[in-house]
Every structure is written in C-alpha cells, then in structure tokens.
Write a protein that binds this DNA or RNA. Structure first.
Ligand SMILES: [Zn+2]
Ligand SMILES: [Zn+2]
Ligand SMILES: [Zn+2]
Ligand SMILES: [Zn+2]
Lengths: 127, 127
DNA sequence: CGTGCTAATGATAATCGTTGTCAAAAGTAA
DNA sequence: TTACTTTTGACAACGATTATCATTAGCACG
C-alpha cells in the first residue's frame, strides 16, 4: 500500500508542469528554487515510482542521465524531442509498431520491445 | 595524427570477434583473461575513438553502460538485440528512415536524428 | 640507426549520477 | 491517541566513466 505524501504530489505536479523531459536533479533544483524543501533521494524515488507505475515515461540521455516526462496519454507512444530545450511532442505510429514486431519475428526473436526516439531542433531553438 | 599502437589493434580485433554489443569493462576483462596486458582506460579510449571514427556503433544499456559493436556495414542501420546474450542482427529499413524524417518535418523540427533499437530474446536464449 | 618531439599508455584519483543506509518523521487503520 | 509501517532525507557508498600525469613508445628527420 503506497502512502500519500506531499512530496510525491509535488514531484508529480512539477513534472506535469514541464514541457519536456527533465532529470531528477533538474526537477529537484527547480523544486528547491521554488522554496519546496524536498530531499534529492526522495525526488529520485518518486520519479522511479511514477515511471514504474506507468505515469511517466523515461529515457536515457546521451550523457547518461535518466530523463522523465509526464505524458498526456497512457497508451504506447514515442517522442520527438528538441535536443536543445527538451521540448517534446508525442508520436503514435502503428506502422512502426508493426514493423518492429515483424523485424523481431522474422528473426525468430520473441518478447520484442523497442526504443524509438526522434531528436531534432524545435522551431524556437532553430532561431 | 593518430598513431598506430598494438593496444588499439587489440581492441578493434577483439571487438570484431564479438557477435553482439559489449561494454568497455567486458572487453577489457576478455582481453586480460586472454593474457593481453592492457589498461582499462586505454580500452575506454580506443572504443570511444572507434565510435567517433564511425568504425563502431554504440548504445546505452538499461543499466547505464555504453555498449559497443563493430558493425559489418558502414551505412546507417539499426539493431535487433537479444537482451539476454547481446547477439545482434543488423537492420536496414528505408521506410522507417523516411518516417522519422517526416515526423520531424511535420513538426518543423530540423537536424533530425533518431535512436531506434529493437530488443527481444533470440531463439537460443528463448531455450 | 640515434634524436627529438609528442601522442599514447596506464595506474590511480577524481567525477557524477544514482542507490543504499538508517534514524527520525509522518501516513493510516483501529 | 496508539501501534504499526512506510517514507523521508542527510549522507555514505557505488559503479561507470573521465581526468591526471609521469612514463613509454610511435614517427619523422637527419
Ligand atoms: Zn527547443
Ligand atoms: Zn512503439
Ligand atoms: Zn540471446
Ligand atoms: Zn535510422
């Protein structure tokens, strides 16, 4: 039984405020700057819980950070991410899902899953 | 000017021996076990160089390790990877490349690039 | 072949994101 | 309230990777 704490709510609320993927450290810094006294370890734990509960998506950045985002939809989807500002657009494409499954089965691989992220520069960041 | 050393050759040769993605630490352990006295930092450097020269592909594992593979083709491609043994199949799919570019341009994102990896269990590992 | 210059090596320390520890604080049910 | 447990948070510990830096060794060039 997971207990309700203001810390978890604060993390979830702030994550939903963000327009793109953010790191645990970044979110913690934001909260502290806003005057919310919360421990870094607590933010790490809250984000990990959100991700494992399916309430947040996560991905690994190039420099080895885990980034999180509260997505608008519960269904499986992918992301188009600005590599500059992190701004993110959710992408759904049944054709690509089908392709991935076919590639796996064509090679007799089972229990398929995939990592598909598209990066670029958003209009704003392209100046 | 990059100088030729037996260490770099040893790393490249051993990487080409592998059937899938391997970590720097794993490759170093393999070399040392084979009696090749080589420093860990040197293996890290050699792999990073191979990747930046386009002679090896790299990806981030779930647990935050950078994995490397000497690929058979120089052209852009993706991978179907066994999450158990690391065995890897190279995948080319022009349709997916086109899709990724279209997703980016539809949203006015420029300088598109993508991360597309398919994971599963290979026939051997599925028992 | 030496000689000189400089890149490469490797043992080790340092870095950095993340997780483990554990005593204190707080949610929850009765 | 009380009793029971989960959660928190300061801080230590971890693990992959990178920085240091003295030593070694490519690689011209004479
Ligand atoms: Zn942007
Ligand atoms: Zn998908
Ligand atoms: Zn396998
Ligand atoms: Zn591609």
């Amino acid at each position: 039984m997971r207990r309700k704490t203001w810390q978890r709510d604060a993390v979830r609320d702030e994550l939903e405020q963000q327009s793109g993927f953010v790191s645990a450290q970044g979110l913690h810094a934001t909260l502290v700057t806003q005057g919310t006294a919360i421990g870094l370890a607590t933010v790490y734990r809250a984000l990990a819980d959100l991700a494992s509960d399916g309430d947040a998506d996560s991905l690994q950045s190039d420099d080895g950070e885990t980034l999180y985002r509260a997505c608008r939809t519960d269904s499986h989807h992918h992301h188009l991410i600005c590599r500059q500002c992190g701004r993110t657009v959710e992408i759904e494409a049944a054709a690509v899902e089908k392709w991935a499954r076919k590639v796996a089965s064509d090679n007799s691989f089972t229990h398929e899953y995939h990592v598909i992220d598209i990066f670029g520069l958003c209009p704003d960041c392209a100046k």
